[in-house]
């Protein structure tokens, strides 16, 4: 592997993959001209777990995944692997991946920042409900003779 893992790119690819497809389409409805290098394709990824949470890997079960690769008019290539079977989600994410690599500031503002904020809110909303079900133990006072 010659390519250096690009932390920012990892981050946006993940954000785009995990975004609700309908929300992504709302935030970025019009795709710029591009060619499809690999048409959106549905398949599966085998999810692995570890025995005991930390031990040897085992096959837990598959999940549906859609992948797509595109090239923009300027030659910039973008890839996407997204959970689920929504082909337009994968294609939109691949186009955005290409745009973001060219440093498209508007895509950053218009899409990524919004998605990140909304994902954070959704996560916090669940965490606060979980926190409300945390048990506070109290010790009963024992009668002393």
């Amino acid at each position: 592997m010659t390519e250096q893992p690009d932390l920012a790119r990892k981050g946006w690819m993940s954000l785009l993959a995990k975004a609700p497809a309908a929300r992504l389409a709302e935030l970025f409805p019009n795709l710029p001209p591009h060619d499809v290098l690999r048409a959106p394709e549905c398949g599966a990824v085998m999810v692995q777990g570890r025995i005991g949470g930390t031990g040897a890997p085992f096959n837990l079960g598959e999940m549906t995944v859609t992948r797509c690769s595109v090239v923009l008019a300027d030659g910039q290539v973008g890839h996407a692997w997204v959970q689920g079977r929504d082909k337009s989600h994968a294609q939109r994410a691949a186009v955005l991946d290409a745009l973001l690599q060219s440093g498209a500031a508007d895509a950053q503002l218009q899409v990524l920042d919004v998605l990140a904020a909304e994902a954070g809110l959704a996560k916090t909303a669940r965490a606060t409900k979980a926190a409300a079900t945390k048990v506070d133990f109290f010790t009963m006072v024992r009668g002393e003779d």
Partner: peptide, 21 residues
């Protein structure tokens, strides 16, 4: 499931980092 091409295997999931409900 049998109609789906297998793209890859994931890295083992990290249950210690689970966002717990």
């Amino acid at each position: 499931r049998t109609t789906l091409p297998r793209f890859a295997a994931s890295n083992p999931v990290e249950t210690a980092k689970m966002a717990v409900d």
